[in-house]
Structure formats: structure tokens, C-alpha cells
């Protein structure tokens, strides 16, 4: 994630330790994937209660863009910055493969580099990516156009409801997604489909691309 952010923005991101209580001023906060605190209790549960999350919560309420990928998405749902929960994959196995994502909402800086309905490639690697929300929450997500990405062409790898792969908060400045766009940003990755997400998030989209 750090390599992708550095290559795309030309600046190395500031790394923040989980015990910090203040965040430097920034354009984008990224909670990357991996595993946090052994993922004990529930994936992302302990990370969501880390001291730094209070500052992340404040930044979110002020409109700072926040991106959570994989364990970062789990941390955002556990901290209630995003609705719903990510449960054990329906097939019970860890999935590590490439899926297809449909851009469900391109009317947001994170997805402005794509067209609504466009299908892109993206890798996934997770054990707990099965998106769940109660029917009322799910309806409000759909009604408010908060679904950012859906697994497309029958590639839902985990049983997520409504094929949900990524969602925005109501205000649109917080995005959580299970797939890893940072792993498809340069030709050496065999494709650059994930790159426009970061360019959008950091206001780096060229006019032609947008």
C-alpha cells in the first residue's frame, strides 16, 4: 500500500502507529490490509478500539477522505464508521485470487476515474469478507447509493449480500472495500485497474481520464 501511494502521488505517506492520538493534517487516511492484533476476537475488532481511531473518527467527521482496504474495511465497520459487518467467507476458505468489480457509483472522488457500470479487475485476499447488514441497513445503503463496488460476472468470492465489495459512508468521504486495488497499479502487476481509485482519492486524475 505504501509503495502504491508513494508511486502514484510522488510523496511517501506518513506512517502512524496505532497508539498515536493525533494525526498530522493530510488529504487521505488509508487503513491498509493485513492482520491486526492477530485478528483476535473478530477481524479488525481490536484495531477499531485502538487510540488512533478516535483521531480517525474526528477526521472522518470533518470530511477527510478515509480509505480502508481489507482489514482496514473490517476496522471501519467494527468502529461503526461504516455500517454492517464482515463475516467468515461463506465457503469457509481463505480466498486469494482475482475478481471482477463493477463500479456501482462513480459519482464520488474515489471512483470518479471510472464509469458507472464499468467492470474492472481486482485481486482479493481474505478470510472474513462476507458483507452482512440487516435488511433495513442494506436497503438504506442501496437507497442512498452507498455501494461503491460489487463483485461482477459471478465472481463473488465470499457470499457478500448484494455482491457488495465496497461501500461509502453516508457523507461519501469514507470508503471501505475488501479487494486490494493497490495490488494492480502498475504494468508489472499485469494491469493498472486499481490506479484510478488512488488518483481520484488524491485529486490526481488528469482531465482526460476523468
Amino acid at each position: 500500500m505504501i509503495a502504491a501511494l508513494t508511486k502514484i502521488s510522488g510523496n511517501a505517506p506518513t506512517r502512524i502507529w496505532h497508539t498515536e492520538t493525533n494525526l498530522p493534517g493530510c488529504d487521505l487516511i488509508v487503513i491498509p490490509g493485513g492482520f491486526s492484533h492477530g485478528d483476535y476476537l473478530r477481524s479488525g475488532a481490536i484495531a477499531a478500539r485502538a487510540p488512533v481511531m478516535q483521531a480517525v473518527r474526528q477526521a472522518a467527521s470533518k470530511g477527510t477522505r478515509i480509505l480502508g482496504v481489507c482489514n482496514g474495511f473490517q476496522t471501519l465497520t467494527e468502529s461503526a464508521l461504516l455500517p454492517g459487518a464482515l463475516m467468515r467467507n461463506a465457503g469457509l476458505t481463505f480466498v486469494c485470487k482475482e475478481v471482477k468489480l463493477e463500479i456501482a457509483n462513480a459519482d464520488n472522488p474515489f471512483t470518479a476515474g471510472y464509469k458507472k457500470g464499468e467492470v474492472i479487475r481486482c485481486p482479493v485476499a481474505h478470510h472474513d469478507g462476507n458483507y452482512f447488514a440487516d435488511p433495513k441497513t442494506l436497503k438504506s445503503l442501496e437507497d442512498n447509493d452507498q455501494v461503491a463496488f460489487r463483485y461482477a460476472e459471478g465472481t463473488n468470492p465470499n457470499g457478500s449480500l448484494n455482491d457488495i465489495a465496497g461501500i461509502f459512508n453516508k457523507a461519501g468521504n469514507v470508503l471501505g472495500m475488501m479487494p486490494h486495488p493497490e495490488n494492480l497499479v502498475e504494468p508489472e502487476h499485469s494491469g493498472t485497474d486499481g490506479r484510478r481509485l488512488f488518483e481520484g482519492a488524491m485529486n490526481l486524475l488528469s482531465k482526460e481520464a476523468a
Binding site: 476476537l41 473478530r42 475488532a45 478500539r49 465497520t77 467494527e78 455500517p83 454492517g84 459487518a85 463475516m87 452482512f132 447488514a133 440487516d134
Partner: peptide, 9 residues
């Protein structure tokens, strides 16, 4: 409420 359970699920 704060940690042991995720009351969403």
C-alpha cells in the same frame, strides 16, 4: 456493547 460482541451480528 463496547467490545465483546459486535451487536450488528
Amino acid at each position: 456493547e463496547k467490545l465483546l460482541a459486535n451487536t450488528v451480528i
